[in-house]
């Protein structure tokens, strides 16, 4: 301990940290180790109504529907009737001639995209620590989601089997 105190004095001499000298002491403590996004002392105000509950419910309900839609989709596309080799422009055109498959694919597109986007939203909320990072990541996510949903919907509704 005695050698420690002598080192302390040389550390505060103004020459700068000497090798082996301590940077911190009782009067000049180091910053404490803070966790990310510490709770604010103010009681949070109610903000978004039932959005979080709706999102939580949507995840469960869309998940159940997607199990049927996606497994059915995979079965038809990859297993039944010759498997992957049958898929081509003619196959897609043939399926989308029926409103049933149009609705199936449209529903699958919307539910899967919103389900995935909401899942990623919670991942970003959980793991992106800085508010700016969260803002940008979510902005990117929402842009990509809206773009994909709109493009997919447009294709399903305006699909022309005679395109050349």
């Amino acid at each position: 301990m005695s050698s420690d105190t002598t080192l302390d004095k040389s550390g505060t001499s103004g020459v700068g940290p000497v090798e082996g000298a301590r940077l911190y002491d009782v009067d000049n403590p180091a910053p404490v180790i803070e966790p990310p996004r510490k709770r604010t002392t103010k009681t949070p105000r109610s903000t978004r109504g039932n959005f979080e509950m709706a999102a939580w419910l949507f995840m469960r309900l869309s998940g159940v529907v997607l199990v049927v839609l996606v497994l059915g989709h995979l079965l038809i596309q990859l297993v039944l009737d010759g498997g992957v080799s049958k898929i081509g422009f003619a196959f897609v055109a043939g399926r989308w001639a029926s409103p049933f498959w149009q609705v199936w694919d449209l529903l699958m597109l919307w539910l899967a995209m919103l389900h995935g986007a909401n899942g990623l939203r919670t991942v970003i909320n959980d793991y992106a620590e800085r508010p700016n990072t969260r803002l940008w990541l979510k902005g990117l996510l929402y842009t990509a989601t809206v773009f994909t949903i709109l493009l997919g919907t447009l294709v399903i509704f305006t699909f022309d089997p005679n395109i050349r």
Binding site: S46, E52, D126
Partner: peptide
């Protein structure tokens, strides 16, 4: 319930 229904309430539980 209203307090726990919010953004940082029970819905964040995984």
């Amino acid at each position: 319930l209203e307090i726990l229904n919010d953004k940082d309430g029970v819905w964040r539980c995984r």
